[in-house]
Amino acid sequence: MVTGEPSPATPMISVKGVNKHFGALHVLKDINLEVPRGQVVVLLGPSGSGKSTLCRTINRLETIDSGSIHIDGDLLPEEGRKLATLRSEVGMVFQSFNLFAHKTILENVTLAPMKVRRKGKDEARKKGLELLERVGVANQADKYPAQLSGGQQQRVAIARSLAMGPKVMLFDEPTSALDPEMVNEVLSVMTSLATEGMTMIVVTHEMGFARRASNRVVFMADGTIVEDAEPDEFFTAPKSNRARDFLGKILDH
């Protein structure tokens, strides 16, 4: 593929004909998805629909059986240094935060820039503190993750990914493990990222975020993309039965 200056028309993420099996289970069935630069996509669906798996294939935490995935025009490599480089340009935020428990908050944020991008210590620290300030936890810089609340930890996780200057951010159910009163502080960080033009793929159950901050809702069920529409359209007038069924169950309470 072309690796020169990508034209604005090149989609940031391009998933073509992707299939995946877990043993006998066919979890991703011929997925096609294109995400242009700057778009915020929310992946919705019942559990077992494959949305998390799809999200994880984009930075090759899960392998695919067939099809191709391109990131900003470059084919996703299967291994080696090129994969590591490409991964560093795709940020990932996990449901269980996964901060490095034996390192301070600041060390968590500066580790990857120093060891993968080989930035100098001072430069990394400066950038790290800026990012921590941005997500609102700069005053916790020298604490350890266990000393922070869930919401704070998740915000640090976002800062950690941002420290690598990613082109696209993946969120795998970022608020599902949080107490209700902490969900909003994380969502507001995500919303501000979206406003600044970051390309985002978010697997979530937070309908409020989907309606307010996203450009596009992709509804998955049983390993296929069932519906793909703008949020307003999707929530007020879902086209498929499956989607209607799903919305009916969750919007009731």
Binding site: N59, L61, R87, S96, F97, N98, L99, A101, V116, R160
Partner: peptide, 19 residues
């Protein structure tokens, strides 16, 4: 005992297996 999500996070950041 190390929550293995941390290994995944490290891989996602671009660290090699050795690192």
């Amino acid at each position: 005992t190390v929550p293995l999500g941390q290994a995944e996070a490290a891989r996602s950041l671009g660290l090699s297996f050795g690192q």
